[in-house]
Design a binder for these strands. Structure first.
Lengths: 208, 208
DNA sequence: TCAGCATACCCCCGATCGGGGGATATGGAG
DNA sequence: CTCCATATCCCCCGATCGGGGGTATGCTGA
């Protein structure tokens, strides 16, 4: 199996490379440390499996996945990341990922997953599956609600949200209300915290 | 140099181990994946250098550092973590860390830092130093303000903050006001986001 | 000793929030 | 074609927020 590894942490790449190198049916054929680089390398190498982190500077991993999958629908991509927010997992799988692993997993789990995915299977470890299951029944935020949420996280009042989105303050308020109800939050502050925990928005950087 | 490595990511440990193993003046003498385990291993092995992640399940790295340094004041600890919030860096250094590295650094940087720290030096990469410098003039939140901030992040109103802390709503309000002014936030929501970005609180889990 | 700070409390007041009740239009799914 | 989610706008109203003022305690470090 020819593997492309995409991650901006050289030390982690080293670790994965060591694990892969010890297998006689796998080899790392390319590495990338950013989204655009990942797309380039995929075009050049056509790997059987791609290991992809989601948190990277610049273009994030999700966009890279979407690009690769739209160009190469048969690409097998395994997401390997630190965070386990259900929304982030769902977005990645919708983009076309075949598996979603957390970085705190063991070597064996990584190797097992690579082999499963190579056989064409999809895979979610129970830890991740459980997180998704816990929010199966929740209905997702709509596009407008996401926009409002991001502005609220920047400290915008309802009036400012209205101005920036060119809608009335009343409309912004009603969006905020449904955000609170969908997320089960008591106020806008808790809504932002819950959304960050669940991977709905990324407050550490900026956009989703 | 005898090195103890503390991190809950086996794959990253593998990577660091590979890098260290290639050096003829260093070796990994022990590994730990949690705070208590780190303290145990330190007592048993008395390493020259300890590489420590801050984000770990259970006891966090900061507490482990404090425990180790109070028992072994000559311990040389290098923090190796993902996040770069200025408050987190400052807390770690106050706890007694000798250096603060980000996980996206190169092998060479890690090795350089290990050697510098082994000589008794302290070290902050310019990337990290810059983040601290940007907030040098800010005055830190007081203990009570931290308590209030954590409750606010949980969606508490001023009244609820007052009840939970056994102070009046008015006092809670005045704490919130100074939090807003110290963080430069427009409202409590933005205050929580800024505090999370700067590593003042950790909204992804719970406590600071 | 005394200034400075953190802590705690109080009042006022306009702005904002969040819940409640609506209404209308659009567009896609069944 | 009907149903439903989305999106937009409107009004009311009590609760909450955040800024402004002020007072008092106790600890600490210069």
């Amino acid at each position: 199996m020819r593997i492309l590894m995409v991650d901006d942490h050289p030390l982690l790449r080293e670790g994965i490379a060591a694990v892969i190198a010890a297998q006689d049916d796998m080899s790392i054929v390319a590495e990338a440390s950013s989204g655009p680089e990942a797309i380039d390398m995929f075009r050049k190498c056509r790997p059987d499996i791609t290991l992809m982190d989601l948190q990277m500077p610049g273009m994030n991993g999700e966009e890279a996945i979407r690009n690769i999958v739209s160009e190469f629908p048969k690409a097998r991509i395994i997401v390997l990341t630190n965070y386990s927010g259900d929304a982030q997992v769902i977005r990645a799988m919708k983009m076309g990922a075949s598996a979603y692993l957390l970085k705190n997993m063991l070597r064996a789990d990584l190797l097992d997953t690579i082999r499963k995915v190579h056989e064409g299977k999809h895979y979610l470890p129970s830890e991740v599956a459980g997180i998704i299951a816990a929010h199966m029944m929740d209905d997702a935020l709509s596009g407008r609600e996401m926009d409002v949420l991001r502005l609220v996280a920047q400290g915008c009042s309802n009036k400012e949200v209205g101005n920036r989105m060119h809608i009335s303050e009343e409309t912004a308020k009603s969006h905020v209300s449904s955000i609170l109800s969908k997320l089960g939050a008591r106020d806008r502050t808790q809504a932002v915290v819950i959304a960050a925990r669940r991977g709905i928005i990324d407050i550490l950087n900026g956009a989703p």
